[in-house]
């Protein structure tokens, strides 16, 4: 069963900006799916259409097989949404915000109270339940929106940058929480600018750029496309210049830090051996950038470059029109 299915979805705003140019996408039930893209790529427009905040111009959307044009109300009952911006009344009490949201989903206060308590406890907000939401920290407000989205036990959870502005410790605890609810069967669609987050949580991924899906594959499959990885090596001794490492591109960043590019098929142990041969010990090793980040940047740059080329070529321009 597909949790979400989009076919040829298009959106043109009133000012003429075409935010989505006919995207198609499937998310399987139970998946933890990443929808990534640079700012203004069309991620929020896509999710906005799915949760009815944005009206589509053309195309079809199904949520668990339900056509949103035919029975959006039933489709919405299966969804929980955590938006990018805080969107609750800051003067309401924490518990009231969650209970009110449950009411909009048809749950009476009596029915919603036990689940509200459990969610607020799980998300570390139970002690704050009687406080007005404006008194909460940024991280707590994010967790409140997650509790609110989950109160009616949705089958599909949409998280639009849920950890933006959250410190690393809290972010990791939120990851654990999200993984747990995904394990319990909730399908999750995540957009994020923290690519490390997407890499460690999601099994499948779509990258959207300029209103088009430029990649839609499994996370494993995408990462295997990476042709090279750049490592930073911390050395024990000091160097005056970059050492000779046959077959590898390397650069000395400072006296004790060496940047080495390892291409597909190469083995990093060859670097260690070569350095050992030059009486250099490696103390530690780390990736220069997140692997997904490297791929993401190269994919998005590729699209931008082809757009630029097409713009520069009049024939291509006619073809595109």
């Amino acid at each position: 069963m597909k949790a979400l299915s989009l076919q040829n979805l298009e959106k043109t705003y009133a000012n003429g900006h075409q935010a989505l140019k006919g995207i198609s996408l499937d998310v399987e039930e139970g998946d933890f799916f990443a929808l990534l893209g640079p700012n203004g790529a069309g991620k929020s427009t896509t999710l906005g259409i799915v949760c009815s905040l944005v009206r589509k111009t053309a195309g079809k959307a199904h949520i668990f097989g339900i056509d949103i044009d035919k029975d959006f109300a039933r489709a919405k009952q299966m969804m929980g949404v955590v938006p990018q911006e805080f969107n609750f009344s800051v003067f309401e009490k924490v518990e009231d915000i969650v209970l009110t949201s449950a009411g909009y989903q048809g749950m009476t206060e009596k029915e919603a109270r036990p689940r509200t308590e459990r969610l607020l406890r799980d998300l570390g907000l139970w002690d704050k339940r009687d406080q007005q939401a404006r008194m909460l920290s940024g991280g707590m407000k994010r967790r409140l929106m997650i509790a609110r989205a989950l109160v009616h036990n949705p089958k599909l959870l949409i998280l639009d940058e849920p950890t933006a502005g959250v410190d690393i410790e809290l972010r990791r605890s939120m990851w654990t929480f999200m993984q747990e609810i995904n394990r319990q069967g909730t399908t999750i669609i995540l957009t994020t600018h923290y690519l490390e987050e997407a890499e460690s949580l999601c099994r499948n991924i779509a990258i959207i750029d300029q209103g088009e899906i430029i990649k839609n594959t499994s996370m494993k499959g995408l990462l295997s496309e990476l042709n090279s990885e750049t490592f930073l090596l911390d050395l024990q001794g000091e160097l005056q210049e970059a050492p000779e490492l046959p077959g590898f591109n390397c650069r000395l960043l400072d006296a004790t830090t060496l940047e080495v590019e390892v291409r597909k098929g190469q083995n990093i142990s060859q670097v260690f051996s070569a350095l050992k041969g030059q009486n250099q010990e490696v103390i530690s090793l780390r990736n220069k950038a997140n692997r997904l980040e490297e791929l993401f940047v190269s994919l998005v740059e590729k699209t931008a470059a082809s757009e630029f080329k097409a713009d520069a070529n009049p024939a291509a321009k006619v073809d595109r029109v």
Partner: peptide, 18 residues
């Protein structure tokens, strides 16, 4: 209008309430 301004109206719009 406050609900619109604070965007809390989205709570209802994303729910199945007609």
């Amino acid at each position: 209008f406050s609900s619109k301004f604070q965007r809390s109206i989205e709570e209802i719009l994303v729910s199945p309430v007609p």
